[in-house]
Amino acid sequence: MNNLGIVLAVAGAVLAALLAGIGSAKGVGLVGEAAAGVVSVDPSKFSKVLILELLPGTQGLYGLLTAILLLSRVGIIGGTAAELTAAQGWMFFAASLPMAIVGLISGIVQGRTAAAGVGITAKKPDHNGKGIIMAAMVETYAILALLISILLIYNIAI
């Protein structure tokens, strides 16, 4: 049980990368489907729909960032893993949750919003920016989750 602390910290890092990655994959995939539909009719809209497709991909990056920061903080990256108590391990685990859960949900929801934005681009290409803004609004919550995860990771006393 001496290793429980570090195991929990690693599990937190895995969860952040995993769930946020799943959210992004689902979101990007959904927008990709919609984008492919538009491009099949009008290939000239490729660049416009590509921006929308990229938007839900950020959650995966935030999850990755959270995982790297957490692993770095507990010394896994760098060679010497810190000796963590179970309480510290749980704290690191909890610190990863905002990014993991919000990353999963916001990735999927942003995908839906961006797919709707693809519809705007399809019908009114000049209003493409509005679709991007609407999808980008969802991003706010992923950024807030990332912020709180980072603050927690750096402020847990080891």
Binding site: A36, V41, A122
Partner: peptide
């Protein structure tokens, strides 16, 4: 639901 995302987008392009 998120079904037929590709078809709906294509149809929206065709509506033009």
């Amino acid at each position: 639901r998120t079904d037929h995302a590709s078809a709906v987008a294509a149809v929206k392009a065709m509506e033009n």
